[in-house]
Simulated scan of single mutants.
Amino acid sequence: MDWKVKGDGIFILCIVCFVCVTSIVSVDVLVESPKPARVGESVTLKCSLQTPNLKVKQVTWKKFSKKGVTQVATYTAILGALVSSEYEKVLNITVKSLQATAITIWKTKASDDGTYQCIFNVFAHGAIVRNISVSLYEPIKGSLQKYNESADAFLAKCVTTGWPSPDISWIGVGSGHTNGSYSETINETATFTNWILVKKLPKSNLMEQLECRVHHLGYETIYKMPKQPHAKSGLQPIIIALIVGLVLLVIGVVAAVVCRSRRRSSQHLSH
């Protein structure tokens, strides 16, 4: 009985020692993050184990977003490469092995920007996790427009498209005006709208003074209100008609003088 107890104790001790030894061994993973890329270009993310003799059961890729964590793709020796339905048309596992892995995102969108994880599920070690960041950009395009106007105020919107979201400030109208912003994605294009409700002041033209200053990727762009066309006066057609009539009159007089001069010259030669 004593030998059985001792034998069980030794067996448990061996298991504990094995777990401790395998957990102490550090696992080295080489991570290759892609360079910042323009939206529409392809990016490749790579992870590779540098520690030899590890029994990897599965490799998994995940992505973090505002909605949570999404499993992007997996690879096993038995099932091979599997890409989730959400990504199967835009992403491939381009390096398929249990020791090294890579995924390529084709024709990136702004929504592909963010943090990804490569996960090696290793026997006796558990999950070996490393983070990789994808940084995307798209040059900003924008405009400043007036949308509503009343006797005492007007609403202006500065609408920009691009990535990442820009920093926008209002200049030229002072403080105390209500303003806000919102963003949306239209046809895979990120659109950012900043608005301001400007209270009019007597004897001031705040609409012409208003500026939307956009800071994006180290550059500043200033948008102003498009100049309003001046109202045409009702006298302009009359003035144009008078000028045309006067020109025609002058031409007629000159033509008559020339003809009369030629007749006189002809009569003089005949005599």
Results as ranks from 00 to 15, higher is better:
N194G: 07
V29Q: 09
T189N: 14
Y116Q: 03
D167F: 10
D28N: 14
K96Y: 04
V254R: 06
D167L: 10
H230G: 04
V129E: 08
G245R: 05
G162M: 06
I251M: 09
T70N: 10
K67E: 14
K66T: 08
V198Y: 01
S233M: 07
P164G: 04
Q71V: 12
L54T: 03
W106T: 09
Y219L: 05
D112E: 12
A100L: 05
L144E: 03
L155Y: 08
R260F: 00
T161C: 01
G180M: 05
K200I: 10
I15M: 09
I15T: 13
T108E: 03
A256W: 03
V253A: 01
V83D: 09
K46Y: 07
V69C: 00
K6C: 05
L235H: 06
V214R: 01
K46M: 07
G126T: 07
H125L: 07
A37E: 14
K109H: 08
K96H: 02
L49N: 02
P34A: 10
I78T: 15
T189C: 06
E88F: 07
T51G: 04
A81T: 10
P139V: 07
L30R: 07
A100W: 01
I119P: 00
K6E: 08
L54V: 02
V253M: 02
W61V: 03
P36V: 02
K89P: 05
V25T: 14
S111Y: 11
H215G: 00
K57I: 14
N205E: 13
L54N: 08
Q145Y: 04
F192P: 00
S135A: 15
N179H: 09
T70K: 14
S97C: 01
Y182R: 08
I103F: 03
I119W: 07
S266F: 02
T108Y: 04
R264N: 03
I24T: 11
P34N: 09
Y182T: 13
A124V: 00
T191G: 00
E88R: 15
I119E: 06
G218P: 11
P229C: 03
K199R: 12
V95C: 02
M1P: 05
A156G: 04
H268P: 03
K62M: 13
L82W: 05
I128Y: 01
I140W: 01
T193C: 08
S150R: 03
K227T: 11
V5D: 13
F123W: 10
V247S: 08
L91I: 02
P237R: 11
I93E: 06
R38V: 02
H216L: 09
V27A: 04
I239A: 05
K203E: 12
W163P: 02
